[in-house]
Structure formats: structure tokens, C-alpha cells
Design a protein around this nucleic acid. Structure first.
Lengths: 367, 367
DNA sequence: TTGTATGCGTTATCAA
DNA sequence: TTGATAACGCATACAA
């Protein structure tokens, strides 16, 4: 025999039973009133009064067990401190919160085993769905994604036509925008500081850079290409290595953190930006506009991708029968001082504080 | 009459009943084996085999209903994109994840009603505890905190001796460290760019600045004080206003975002940092080291406070009877190029890439 | 409209 | 060790 049902739990917190007893009705009636369905005026009054008196608050867990919904949505990214993911997370949190749900965050450290663990854990239904942005995609991933017991939306490139909701961008094209712009302002020796080539974004950017040069009939000098990881320190170090052996008149960086590192390297060695070396980052995070000079950057729509991913997920949670969807966010180039065609004079006398629009000039938005 | 208990739920996912039936034992035995408590070798074998065959995964919600634990911890901050909170969140996530729990994040927008809503919602037990960093503290807050049905840890100043677990720092002293340092390197006209005075951190920094000057017998020129909010754009704008009416030889900023905005304002108007104006930020976020020149900054131990808050919370969850604790993280000053005593030459010929330790020089660590 | 009785999936109790 | 069953707190078919 089990325990006797207590009207008041051990910790003294009121339940429907408490309210029902106090109101002199059955728990069914109490529950109905508390959920706003049915009940005679008199019953409603009594139950509401009783609930207020004892300070009743429905238990979210019990409600979840009944509804099979937790009201939670998970986000799994490599590092919740990376500006790209921060912007993505912020956008997702806003959408999720406005739907009355809450966001659970996971830092995977980019480790595949961690991601697999999270995907497997979905089976226990602790969340209603997950948004994941894997930096590398393996077959195991695909299997876990396709066979996931709860809705999953992937942010990022996904091979083939995996039947998984997916929000992506075209970072190859993004790199091309940067290269085209630099060539257009007369730069010829364009360097490239990339992240690891064995990551999805790293490989795409590398391919994009080479393709863009080739399209313009420019032969790539391998000395102008350097690889680190997607962090500030590694970006700075990579830029230092590159500058030690080559003399670029422009630098494209695989993300803004790398670009900030490169800017530091350039300025610290007395190079002027953009006069001596033009500089373009990627992701167009807030960081880009905080630098001096402000950094040109290829927007890959981090926030927009996050927002859309969240919406796709909420839709699928509402209707799991939906067919898999794929959305694409077009990259665009925000041109700022670091790649200005007409270099500003070193000591501007005019008011340097004219409002700087977030994206003063865009290329390729429609291409 | 209710529904009949189905051995397999509608969605076909296996439960203990499925496993028990397949193994030919009772659900009690199945549950015991699955939890690793008891069971004969033969029973264990059969149950494990059955579980593996049907791909059984325990349901987190049902388990929570039974255990009264969700395994979730919440974090509520103003803006999950602010570098300070990002660092805090990252530290908290690490502690929380390593305890096998997961982190739910809330962006309050600094709005008290949002915070109150979250605190009230704790009553439904959707998380095991919460870490909250209110930017303003009202009596309502205190009431909700003290009477919270689940453990709450506050990061930040908390009036009086509220019986609530609390991790704080001494930002007044932090400002003093900055002022002392600037005076020590010979600066005399020290400006201050603060955040809103009606916030706890804003008020503390203001008091700290005035007290520090007074302690040195320096009369404060109100023209040297400007207020915005704790963001980059507002910080830049505030610095512009200040520079338009006064000529400081040093600037203390209430956080790094403001300092970065001020740096932008200084450089854009042709001022040299630190030669013309020395600059010190607060929070010592990663941002500070990314700037050129690298920014001196008063560390208030964001990550450390987050880590400690998480540990306090986990301890309290484990033992709610613990007395309220208060921990304090001492501020320390990281001196970098932006307030260097010996201004570097504008075009360094030596290797500018000697490794820069995170905190090359600290003051006040022990005070 | 109201109350009774189940069921959500799990763990814990108790008797065998 | 094992099985039957109550209980976690809530929502809901069904009968009254």
C-alpha cells in the first residue's frame, strides 16, 4: 500500500485538493474553475476565493505531465559567449518568451559527443523542442536529428536534403561580397584569415574566398591565407603570422572576432586602416561598430536566423505534421570606415559624430 | 470513468510498463532495475534487455513529479547580450551543467514587473532555483525574494541584511582603485561617465567616484561628470557631451561598453589614448583586451560572482535549511595600455606582440 | 453544472 | 527479491 493522499503536501503548499476542500467542492470543479472552463457563478466565486486565500499556484510539472508539454525550448551552440551566438540567442529568447515559453541554453564546446548527448537526451522530453547550431555535421548527427523524438531546427549548413527544419545562410556568397567590394575600391593583394577548415563554416568560407578570386581571374597567393580558430586571440596571432610573410593591402576575416584580432595586429604594427590595409569582418556583430575605425562586416543575419529558427520551431511544435522546411537568409555587406573607398583624413575636423546607420551601405542584398 | 491505461502511449513511445511487460516482470521490478537498486541477476538481465530492445528512455517530467525536482536552474538578468552578463552566464552554465542540471535564461529588460513576474512564477516550481541580478531593488523585490518558494540567489547589492543568499562586489571600491591609479600616474582632471543614477550599480559608482576624489582632497568639477546608460551608444554620446564642455586628462567609465564608446569618441576627435586622455573601464570583460589600445579596466569578477552564485544555489537546493550567506568578490584593477604611466611611442619598433597577460598588474586585490 | 474515477509515467511503500 | 498499488498534482471523460 502506498502513502495516503494528503490534502496538503508535506511542504504545506496548497494543491487543487486544498482549494477544493476549502471551497467545499470537488477537485474536478476546482480544476475547471481554475482553468476557466465551466462552473456556476457560485462555484466560481467560492473556488476563486479559496484559491486566493491559500495562495494557490498550479504546479507546472504536474501540468506538464498531463499536457505532455514542458513549455521549454532548448538552444545548443558551441559557446554562449561568442558574439554571433549571443545575438542569435537574444533573438531566440525574445521569440520564445513572447510565446510564453522559456529558453534552456546549452554550451556544447563544439564537441560532437556533447551534442549527441543532448540530442539523445531529448528522448526524455525535458523540452518541447531544440534549436541546434552544430559547427561540424556528422552522419551520427543526421541520424539523431532525423530520428529525434521532439522537433529540432538546425541553424547552419546541412548536407544533402536532410528532412530537418533548417535555417541557413550562404557564407560563400558572403565572402564573395567582401572580395568584390575590396576589388572595387582598388585593392589587389587580398589576404584571408579563416577559422578551422574542418568546420562547416570554415570550409564554406575558404571555398568562397577562392571562388571569388578565381571569378575575377586573380591567382591566389597562398601566403595571403592563414588559418586559426574563430576566436580573438587566434585571429590576432594568425594575422601576425600572415603579416610577417606577406604584404596584403586588404584583409578578409572569417568572423568579427578574428577581424578585431587582425585590427589589433595591424594597428600595433603601425599600419593604418583602411589606408594601408582595408579590413572586413563577418557576422556583423555589435563588435564591428564598436571598433575604431568601425569595421566593415558581412552580415550573415545571426539574429534573423535565430528569429526564424525559433519561429520554425514553434510552428512545428504546434503542428508536427508539417513538411520539413528550409529557409535561407541572404548575406549582405555593411561597408564602414575600415574599408572606405575614400580614406578619411587622420584628424577629421568635421563633426565625426554624424549618426552612423547600422548598415550605411549594402551590396548583394538581392543577389 | 477515465481512459484505460495503455501499455504503449499513443505516440508509441515505450514506458516502464512496456519494458516490464516485455521482460515479464512487474513495473516495480522494472523501475528498480532501471534505477540500479535491487533486482536479481536474472531480472536485471531481462529488464535491461527489454529496455534496450524497445529503446526505453525515462520520462523527465514524470520523474520530476515524483522527485519534486526539475533539474533546472534559472538565471534572470537584464540583457543576456551584455558582456558582463554573458561572462556571468557562461560561468553559471558551466557550474550548472557540471552538476547535471540545465540552465534556463530570462531577459528581464531591467523591468521590475518582468522580474516580479518571474519571481512569482517560481511558485509553480518549474525550476529548482533561480539566480537573479536585479538592476534596481524595490521592497516588492525583497518581499518576493525572502518569501520565495524555491531557493533564490541574488547577484548584486542588496540593502540591509535581507535573509537571502547574496554575492556582491564593492563597486565603490572598484571606482576608487581606478581614481587612485589615475592620480598616481599624474592625471588631475578625471572625468566620469556613469550609467543611470537610479540603478544600484549607477548609484554605487557615483558615490565611489565622489568619495575617491574627496579622499584625495580634490574638488569635483561637475562638468566632468556625465550620465547615460550602460550601453555602448549611450556611452559614446555621453563622452561626446562631456568632451564638448570639459577637457579631462582621464576618463573613468562605469562599465566596459561605455568605455569602448568613450574610446571611440576620443579617437574620432583626434585625441590620443592614453597620452591625451587616459581611459579606464569597469567589469574587465573580454572587450577591454580587444580594443586598441587595450583598455585598463576594474574587474568586478563577473565570472567569479556567477560561479559563486551558482555554487551557493546548488548548495541551498541540496540543503534548504542552510542559513543565508553573503559572499563578496573583491574588485581589482587591470592596468593596460589605455592608462599606461609611460605612454608607448606611437610607432613601436619593438615586437608589439609580447604576450599580454590577462591582468598584467593588479592593485587592491588584498584591500 | 457537478462529482467520481482514471490516467499522465515514475518512484516508493508495504506485504508476501 | 518481488509484485500490487498508492501517490506525485493536475486535467478530463463520463455519469449523475
Amino acid at each position: 500500500m502506498g502513502r495516503k493522499r494528503l490534502q496538503e503536501p508535506a511542504d504545506g503548499r496548497p494543491t487543487v485538493h486544498t482549494v477544493a476542500a476549502r471551497a467545499g467542492v470537488s477537485i474536478a470543479s476546482a480544476s475547471r474553475v481554475l482553468n476557466g472552463v465551466g462552473g456556476s457563478p457560485e462555484t466560481i466565486r467560492k473556488v476563486r476565493a479559496a484559491a486566493a486565500e491559500v495562495g494557490y499556484v498550479p504546479n507546472a510539472i504536474a501540468r506538464s505531465l498531463q499536457s505532455q508539454r514542458t513549455g521549454l525550448v532548448a538552444l545548443a551552440v558551441e559557446d554562449i559567449g561568442n558574439p554571433v551566438y549571443v545575438e542569435m540567442m537574444r533573438a531566440i529568447e525574445a521569440v520564445v518568451a513572447s510565446s510564453g515559453r522559456q529558453l534552456v541554453v546549452h554550451a556544447t564546446g563544439g564537441r560532437i559527443d556533447n551534442e549527441m548527448t543532448l540530442l539523445r537526451r531529448l528522448a526524455n522530453r525535458y523540452v518541447d523542442g531544440m534549436i541546434i547550431s552544430p559547427i561540424r555535421v556528422t552522419d551520427d548527427h543526421l541520424g539523431a536529428l532525423v530520428g529525434s523524438p521532439v522537433p529540432v531546427v538546425v541553424v547552419g549548413q546541412l548536407g544533402a536534403d536532410a528532412p530537418v527544419d533548417n535555417v541557413r545562410t550562404d557564407s560563400r556568397h558572403g565572402v564573395a561580397l567582401a572580395v568584390d567590394h575590396l576589388l572595387a575600391i582598388g585593392r589587389r593583394r587580398i589576404g584571408f584569415v579563416n577559422g578551422p577548415l574542418d568546420t562547416v563554416p570554415g570550409a564554406a568560407r575558404d571555398a568562397g574566398f577562392r571562388a571569388a578570386l578565381a571569378r575575377h581571374g586573380i591567382e591566389l597567393d597562398e601566403d595571403l591565407v592563414e588559418v586559426g580558430d574563430f576566436q580573438y586571440a587566434a585571429g590576432r596571432a594568425a594575422a601576425v603570422r600572415l603579416l610577417a610573410r606577406a604584404a596584403p593591402d586588404a584583409l578578409v576575416c572569417a568572423n568579427d572576432l578574428i577581424a578585431v584580432g587582425a585590427l589589433h595586429a595591424l594597428l600595433a604594427t603601425g599600419r593604418r586602416v583602411p589606408q594601408d590595409v582595408a579590413l572586413i569582418g563577418m557576422d556583423d556583430t555589435e563588435l564591428a561598430q564598436m571598433m575604431f575605425p568601425q569595421l566593415s562586416s558581412v552580415s550573415l543575419g545571426s539574429a534573423e536566423r535565430g528569429r526564424r529558427a525559433a519561429e520554425l520551431l514553434l510552428q512545428r511544435i504546434a503542428d508536427p505534421a508539417l513538411p520539413p522546411r528550409r529557409e535561407q537568409v541572404q548575406p549582405s555587406l555593411a561597408v564602414r570606415a575600415s574599408s572606405a573607398a575614400t580614406p578619411p583624413s587622420p584628424r577629421p575636423s568635421a563633426d565625426p559624430f554624424e549618426p552612423t546607420p547600422a548598415h550605411p551601405y549594402r551590396e548583394g542584398v538581392t543577389s
